[in-house]
Design a protein around this nucleic acid. Sequence first.
DNA 1: GCACTCGATGTCAGACACTGACATCACTAG
DNA 2: CTAGTGATGTCAGTGTCTGACATCGAGTGC
Lengths: 188, 188
Amino acid sequence: MGRWVPGARGRLQRVAFELFAERGFEQTTVAEIAARAGLTERTFFRHFADKREVLFAGQDELTAQVVGALAAAPAELSALDAAAIAVEASTEVLGDRPDGPRARQTVIDAHPELRERELIKMEGLVAAIADGLRDRGVPAGAAALAASSAVAVFRMGFERWITAEDGAMLDACIRQALVELRQVAAAP
Amino acid sequence: MGRWVPGARGRLQRVAFELFAERGFEQTTVAEIAARAGLTERTFFRHFADKREVLFAGQDELTAQVVGALAAAPAELSALDAAAIAVEASTEVLGDRPDGPRARQTVIDAHPELRERELIKMEGLVAAIADGLRDRGVPAGAAALAASSAVAVFRMGFERWITAEDGAMLDACIRQALVELRQVAAAP
DNA sequence: GCACTCGATGTCAGACACTGACATCACTAG
DNA sequence: CTAGTGATGTCAGTGTCTGACATCGAGTGC
């Protein structure tokens, strides 16, 4: 057995989430998180750039999944369809049950500082999708708008998924939101 | 003449912008801003909730302008058209010359913390537009998507406006972006 | 087995953002 | 003239985040 207990990063994430859910984000200090994880404050900041980041560690994985799905999408699809298929692939990361994501979203929505971080992560997803679309030959302007639209569709689908009472699947919610977006954008 | 020089708030904004542009956001302390404005750190925080907010004081005005334009838009317009007309009204606040907004955007884009704040302000604009659309009788889902699309269109139009070399007007850039969005969203 | 490096952590000091409580002082209403 | 108001100053304190250096177990080469 090593000098220290392995899995420090995961422990910090789990403990931080518990404390944020119990007391709220601002009422929890980094020192408390670290102590309950059997570590020091300094070690927390070696694993996470700041106090908020501990809640968003999975974001890179989601982005990678979406970008991979975009690259694998059939070439003949329109920009928006390809981007929509890509964000649907988020189901691979988020799973079937909305319980976990819902609990996490509840914590985020309760604290503006965390909402800010979530928004910039979403903006990173938009940029990654736009990059992928340009790689498919989509012009820059259309790529940016399609990526932005796809993420808006994802966000609406995600929100319905975690609030739905009928157990709807995430990909179905996303597809439904895409249909609505096209209706909204249809020329008058 | 009063005990203190009037215009403290405006002085803080101007000085803060200068220092952020010269040295960067992180290399500037609130104490320095306050000192150069002839005030104390404590007074800075009486005028602005935090260090970033000093750059975003005009946002409320822009949101109010957009919401007002939305309420005044013809009732027969589609949700997206009404929202697009509303964001075009931002010209009333932003003016004709892109120089100022461009300089401000340069500072913001250089610092992730400021980008976060900008994003949550944009999200506030989305929410305000969605509210206004619901007041017009637009269903919640369509309102959210139309608001989100309109702000995406505004952002693309704004970016082209401040980077354009041909002196294009902001409202024209926004209208052009709206056309592109409709092309992107058109059913395949 | 020994020296040596490496990686994760601990320790410590400090800068800076932000807050609460209380003091000051010109101005103003009565 | 006096009491009250509002913007500011002063001060002490908490919490986030960083840099520099120390520690110690585990692997590595010899």
